[in-house]
């Protein structure tokens, strides 16, 4: 109960903001074209939900994020740890990762569209490529930072080199991998919506663009808020999962 109360207090500024929004728009302080009243947005949301548009487009978007991010996490973590463990691979891929990491990933949108068209594949590959980099970097740094004495401990307790990689290096890298994934999670939403706004026939981004062009701004806002809320929920859930997974860290 006190937990719930703390949550309510923490997020009360949002309620205030919602009220201000409603008042500003209803009173004509802000043009209701630029900012439709929140209550209208809520009604538009219900209509979108009833018509099914929200779900079909939402499902498309979530599938793309799930596939792209899933691939990025698995392949990125494996590559990062192997690069830290195996110097030759570091030499080969290190410069590539360094060069691509600071690049604005949205620059890849036209490239993946050119290669793979307007459908799911181009979005999945875009998210995969963009989100893999923070995971690789986290895994690499985490594995490099593995305590020498822990590796020695495992070896003197009878672990083979391979077992040491799996039993010591990988767990040592996990906290940094988790940080990388958190960055990627946020990035995946950015990439998804941008790509869908520009080149897509389905998805949240497409729906936002479509409704905006048609002038149904209350519905457009409804989708924007939905995406924002989903991103927020994903981040919170992820944080809770990480805290539980790393309870040994205190």
């Amino acid at each position: 109960m006190t937990h719930l109360k703390a949550l309510l207090i923490r997020y009360s500024p949002l309620v205030l903001l919602a009220a201000l929004w409603e008042i500003a728009s209803r009173s004509g302080l802000v043009s209701s074209l630029a900012l439709p009243p929140l209550s209208d947005v809520a009604i538009a949301w219900l209509d979108l939900a009833k018509s099914g548009d929200l779900w079909t487009n939402g499902l498309a978007s979530m599938t793309r994020i799930g596939a792209g991010l899933g691939l990025a996490i698995v392949i990125g973590a494996v590559l990062g740890v192997l690069m830290a463990w195996w110097r030759a691979l570091d030499r080969l891929l290190g410069p590539l990762v360094e060069m691509l990491y600071p690049m604005p990933k949205s620059a890849l949108i036209p490239v993946t569209a050119l290669w793979l068209g307007f459908g799911d594949a181009s979005k999945i590959v875009l998210i995969f490529l963009g989100c893999m980099l923070p995971v690789i970097l986290g895994a690499y740094n985490g594995a490099r930072g593995a305590d020498q004495a822990l590796i020695w401990s495992a070896r003197s307790l009878g672990a083979s080199r391979l077992a040491t990689l799996w039993n010591v290096v990988v767990p040592s890298a996990l906290p940094e991998i988790a940080n990388g994934i958190r960055t990627s999670l946020a990035l995946s939403f950015v990439l998804l919506v941008s790509a869908e706004l520009i080149v897509a026939r389905k998805g949240f981004g497409y729906l936002i663009g479509f409704l905006g062009e048609g002038g149904t701004y209350d519905a457009m806002f409804a989708v924007v808020l939905t995406v924002a809320l989903l991103g927020f929920i994903a981040d919170r859930l992820y944080n809770a999962l990480v805290r539980w997974g790393f309870r040994w860290q205190q």
């Binding site: 004495a149 070896r155 003197s156 040994w248």
Partner: peptide, 20 residues
């Protein structure tokens, strides 16, 4: 050669696996 379980070691700074 390399390390092995025939030579057990207790490290000065313990070196316990923190996740276990």
């Amino acid at each position: 050669g390399g390390p092995g379980p025939d030579r057990g070691i207790v490290f000065q700074h313990f070196a316990l696996f923190p996740w276990k």
